[in-house]
Amino acid sequence: MFAFCSDPATLPQWQWMACYLTTGSHFALYRSVLVVLLLLALAAPLALGMGFLGALAVRSGNLLLKSIGTIYVSMVRGVPDIIFFLFVPFAIDQGVEYARHRILCPDWDQPVRQGNDFIVCAAAKMPLATDPLWVHNVWGFSLALFAFALVFGAFAANTLNGAMNAVPRAQLETGEAYGMTRRQTFRRILLPQMWVYALPGLSNLWMILTKATPLLFLLGIQDVVFWARELGGQKTGHYEYTHPDWRVWYFLGVLVFYLTLTWVSQRGFDRLMRKLNHGQATAGGEAQRKAAI
């Protein structure tokens, strides 16, 4: 990085530190922050979408849809989220490969499970062994992303369902009295108003989601936890920059990173809540109105 970094062993303290913190592997650590933020940016809208579908299913008149929705929403409550994070990517990966195997290699006569091996034909591999590396990376990341969306979708479904129930009935009845159809009342009255009721729950969900991102490490993705552990370990003479076990400092850094992230998020949500409360028939809206007088 810097010109003086050519021989780390001879450098004075601050220069050594400057060089050390700008090595390639440290840049990988800084990039892994982006991986975490990318996951958050993608998982949040996906989970919201899943949650919306889940909430609609729970409220549906169709008994089958209703029970599927209810099971989906309550299952995630009874089982620790980490089990889903371990299970879902693993299961989907095998499931996709099995399906491709059945379609692409119909004349394969050996069983797919031989003892403890899971063997599918080469054409059914997902991604293919010949695919370039980035395809493997994107596939791995997508599986993790899907697991997050699935778990947090169930959380969001519950929050959104509660918010829909919280919109005053009288407002919906007024809509119907004006001759709107069910669909119209939903779109014109329920949907715009539910957000103010949903926001406290959703902001809380965002916080839980943020605090669940270090679990990416368990899915084999090189996130901040991975790099903190990798870089913090003792570095012997095989490395250019030798140091004893510094993991505690690296994890302190990760801790501060997450504290900052949640602190900034909280600020953002407080501001958004003030905006949404404006003119609403809620306690928050009333307080704003009184303060303005």
Binding site: F90, L133, H136, G140, G220, Q222
Partner: peptide, 13 residues
């Protein structure tokens, strides 16, 4: 178990 590696540290030869 299947660990999926999202890694910048691979060398294509």
């Amino acid at each position: 178990m299947k660990k999926l590696v999202l890694s910048a540290a691979l060398l294509a030869l």
